[in-house]
Measured scan of single mutants.
Amino acid sequence: NQESVVAAQLIPINTALTLVMMTTRVVSPTGIPAEDIPRLISMQVNQVVPMGTTLMPDMVKGYA
C-alpha cells in the first residue's frame, strides 16, 4: 500500500511547506504520494490544513 503525505500539524493558509509539517501514512483515499515530499518543500497550501489531514493535489499551489 502506498503512503500519502499527511499534515503533521495545523498548516495555516498560504504557508510554505517544510519537512517538519508533513508525515506519511497509508490512507484512503490516497493523496499526494510520499515520494513527492521533496517536491512539496517550499510550496504553499491554498487552504487551512488541519493536523492529520491528507494533502491532496488541489490543496498545494502549483502542484497539480
Rank of each mutant, 00 (worst) to 15 (best):
A64M: 13
P50Y: 15
A8E: 05
T18W: 02
A8C: 04
E3W: 14
A8K: 09
V20D: 14
L17I: 11
V27Y: 02
Q2N: 12
S4C: 05
G62F: 07
V20I: 08
S28M: 08
T30V: 10
M43Q: 08
A8L: 10
G31N: 01
V26C: 04
G62T: 05
I11F: 01
P38Y: 12
L19E: 13
Y63F: 13
L55S: 01
D58M: 13
V27H: 04
E35Q: 12
L55W: 01
T23A: 11
M56K: 13
I11D: 00
Q47H: 08
I11A: 00
L17V: 03
V26N: 10
R39F: 07
L19A: 07
N46C: 04
L40T: 02
I13Q: 13
A7H: 01
Q44A: 10
D36Y: 15
G62V: 04
V20Q: 06
V48P: 15
N1F: 15
I41H: 05
R39V: 13
P33I: 12
R39T: 14
V20L: 08
Q47F: 04
G52S: 08
P50S: 09
A34G: 08
N14Y: 07
A8I: 05
G62E: 13
I37V: 08
E35M: 10
V26W: 10
A16K: 09
T53V: 13
Q2Y: 07
M56E: 10
T23G: 07
L17E: 00
L40I: 11
T15R: 08
E3N: 08
P38I: 09
M51R: 15
A34D: 05
L19T: 11
K61Y: 12
V60T: 01
D58G: 10
N14Q: 07
I37R: 13
L40S: 00
P38C: 03
T23M: 15
M56P: 01
T54R: 03
D36W: 10
G31L: 01
D36F: 15
V27D: 05
R39K: 10
M51I: 11
P12M: 13
P33K: 05
P29M: 09
P12L: 05
N46V: 13
T23P: 01
R39S: 13
T53Y: 09
V27N: 06
M59F: 11
A64H: 10
S28D: 10
M51S: 11
M43W: 04
P57L: 04
L17Y: 00
T15N: 05
P29G: 11
D36G: 09
T15L: 05
G31C: 03
M22E: 01
A7S: 15
M43H: 09
E3H: 14
V27W: 03
Q9G: 06
I41L: 10
V20M: 08
P38N: 09
A34T: 13
P12S: 09
Y63W: 14
V48S: 12
T54V: 12
E35K: 15
T30D: 06
N14V: 02
D36V: 07
L19W: 12
V48T: 12
V20T: 06
T15F: 05
T18H: 06
A7I: 02
I41F: 04
P50T: 15
T53I: 10
L17K: 00
V60F: 10
P57G: 11
Q47L: 06
D58A: 11
R25A: 08
P29E: 11
L10F: 09
T18R: 06
M22C: 03
G31K: 02
V26Q: 15
I11Q: 00
S42I: 02
P38V: 13
V20F: 12
M59Y: 06
V49H: 01
Y63V: 04
I13W: 07
E35N: 15
M43F: 12
Q9E: 09
R25I: 05
R25F: 06
P57A: 08
T30N: 15
E35G: 09
V49Q: 01
V27A: 11
V20S: 13
T24K: 14
T24M: 08
T30M: 14
T15Y: 05
E35I: 15
D36R: 15
A8H: 07
N46M: 10
P50M: 11
L10R: 14
K61N: 10
A16S: 05
A34I: 08
M21S: 06
Q9F: 10
G62I: 04
T18F: 04
S42T: 06
P38T: 08
L55A: 01
T53Q: 11
L40M: 06
N14D: 13
V45Q: 00
P33M: 11
T30K: 15
V49P: 00
V6A: 05
G62C: 04
G52V: 02
